[in-house]
Amino acid sequence: MLFDDEQAVALAVALQIATTTGAGIEEAAARALTTVRQVMPARLRHRIDTLQLAAIQPPTTRPNPQADSSVLITLSAAIHADEVLRFDYAPASPAGAGDNNSAGTAPRRVQPHHLVTWRGRWYLVAWDLDRDDWRTFRADRITPRTPTGPRFTPRDLPGGNVAAFVTSRFRGSDGSGDWPCRGEVILDLLAAAVVPYSRDGIVQELGPNRCRLTLGSWSWPGLASAIGRFDADIEVIGPPELKRACTRLARRYADAATI
């Protein structure tokens, strides 16, 4: 696939952003950025070399454990193939606890459904075959086993979609509750380019340059404005209130441009 100058620079910038996300893809993004930079004309290399990014975290925030890029690829492949996945699940602490795997125990067997990010961490949403229930698993604690299992027919997630499910699972875990206005869109952008700016939103990778973003706000115009800051084509999935807010903002911006 051939890229024009602006697309090549945009790809390089997205990869550089991905090296600062803290979502476990930094090393792979850095390798890809090096490859892209090597094949760029000198004039474009100069443009991207002037961009220096750094991830700033509050002093009290501990860095999130990183998920290995090869694990993310394995999980994504099983999801797209609708194949049962087996994996070892490391304990959250050295002592181990609850429903995590310990050494010598049987691997988890799940029907994988979605790979999402939540506040800088990657999670696998899956139906746990042994516990007969839905579970979320932190990708940085997963060690996949091969081969994958038989194919399955995907189940319907509680709440109707992955955003509603993940939001309900994490709601109240930090005392923040939920936003009164929450909407869902598809962006023509790399998921890694969206994650740093999604706040407490949910980002789901749909393809190399396409992702689903679920985001909340105190008002529908505020939500539409937050989504509009992404420099990409936007497809509003819903709800209707978000579509109407986008229409109103578009009209306001168009009027402002003619004044």
Rank of each mutant, 00 (worst) to 15 (best):
T146Q: 14
D156Y: 05
A97F: 10
R109Q: 15
A139P: 01
G96E: 07
D99G: 11
F152K: 09
Q111L: 11
F165C: 04
P150Y: 04
D140N: 09
F152T: 09
H114C: 07
W127I: 12
G96I: 07
R121I: 04
R109D: 05
L157D: 00
G159R: 03
R121Q: 15
W134K: 07
A97N: 11
V110M: 05
L124V: 04
R108F: 06
G159K: 05
T136V: 15
V110T: 09
D140Q: 03
D140C: 01
Q111M: 15
A95C: 07
G160H: 10
F170L: 13
D128G: 00
D174P: 00
R141V: 03
V110I: 02
L115A: 12
W118H: 15
D174S: 03
A95H: 13
R151C: 10
V110S: 03
R138V: 00
N161M: 03
L115E: 09
P154V: 14
R138I: 00
D156C: 10
L157P: 06
R155S: 12
G104L: 06
T153F: 07
D99E: 08
G98N: 06
A163Q: 13
F170K: 06
S168R: 11
D156G: 05
S102F: 09
G149C: 05
T167S: 14
G159H: 06
L115N: 07
A106V: 09
T153N: 14
L157E: 00
T148Y: 04
L157I: 04
F170W: 13
R109L: 14
F137D: 01
A95L: 11
A97V: 04
L124Q: 00
G175I: 08
A95V: 12
Q111K: 08
A139K: 04
P112W: 05
P147M: 11
Y123G: 00
I142R: 11
T153K: 15
R155Y: 09
S102D: 08
T105E: 15
A126Q: 00
A139G: 05
D156P: 04
A126D: 01
R151I: 08
A97P: 00
G160F: 07
P147S: 11
T143H: 13
I142L: 09
P107H: 02
Y123A: 01
F137T: 02
F137R: 04
R121E: 15
R121F: 01
D99M: 09
S176C: 05
R131V: 01
D132G: 02
G96D: 10
